[in-house]
Design a protein around this nucleic acid. Structure first.
Lengths: 126, 126
DNA sequence: TCATATAGGGATAAATTGATCCCCTATTGC
DNA sequence: GCAATAGGGGATCAATTTATCCCTATATGA
């Protein structure tokens, strides 16, 4: 497993939330789990761009941070279900705010993201 | 300058907001600029853990994404001021939501972040 | 003359994150 | 026996992000 070499900054609230929410798929994982997609395979289908492996790793981190719990059913083939903890649930309105903002500004966002490379870098040979 | 080798995912709103807000210091930069700390040196003093260089790079990205504008005063020594664009200002309530959540849960967050390494990894030889 | 302040950037190294590949478990059904 | 199913993990590589180091410029004040 990867071992951190630097100590995280934990000065202000924004550092703290960064520690638990940074990770390419974490916000989506929380969101989809809240929506009822609780099994790993369901989550993979909802987030096909992420590899199985990375989702597992990020789910594990969410679990370590007590935002989700993992319940294993002792059946074959195995069955696992993730749920939000009460703590994790408090994040849902926050995520909703993020989602709402990006939905409202979707078009603008696409523009500014895709206009790369920036004007000064445009190569007229294209 | 670093050149991207993969194309970003832009499927849903959460991908989009990720594109503009990912970056260790970006949220803080937006927040402090909104608070009136507009000059690079002021921002550096507010965020001493970030190097000058990285702040410049992230400010540049915020500018490319039209969240801030950069005004250069032709004086010596040089003077530069960043301001939020109207677009950037729409993010402030979103950031406030993030900040509020993490302030409310500050103690809990510190706990779960610092309890690392997780129980199964604890080495009794310590 | 030299340090300070102010803003910036290139080159490069280090850290972190994400992706790929291949392997394991056990049962059911063909 | 072999494939499919469902969940998982080690090793390793690639991509990305952040940090470090050192350089530019000009004016002011000691």
């Amino acid at each position: 497993m990867y071992e951190r070499k630097t100590t995280p900054n934990l000065n202000c609230g924004l550092d703290l939330i960064g520690e638990v929410l940074y990770g390419k798929w974490k916000i989506r994982l929380l969101w989809f789990i809240d929506q009822g997609y609780q099994r790993p395979s369901e989550l993979q289908r909802k987030i096909p761009d992420a590899s199985r492996r990375v989702l597992n790793i990020q789910l594990k981190e969410l679990e370590d941070h007590e935002l989700v719990t993992r319940k294993i059913y002792p059946v074959v083939p195995p069955k696992v279900e993730y749920s939000l903890t009460d703590f994790g649930k408090t994040l849902i309105p926050v995520i909703a705010t993020l989602g709402q903002w990006s939905d409202e500004h979707e078009e603008r966002l696409r523009e500014v993201i895709l206009k790369q490379p920036v004007s000064s870098d445009i190569d007229v040979r294209n």
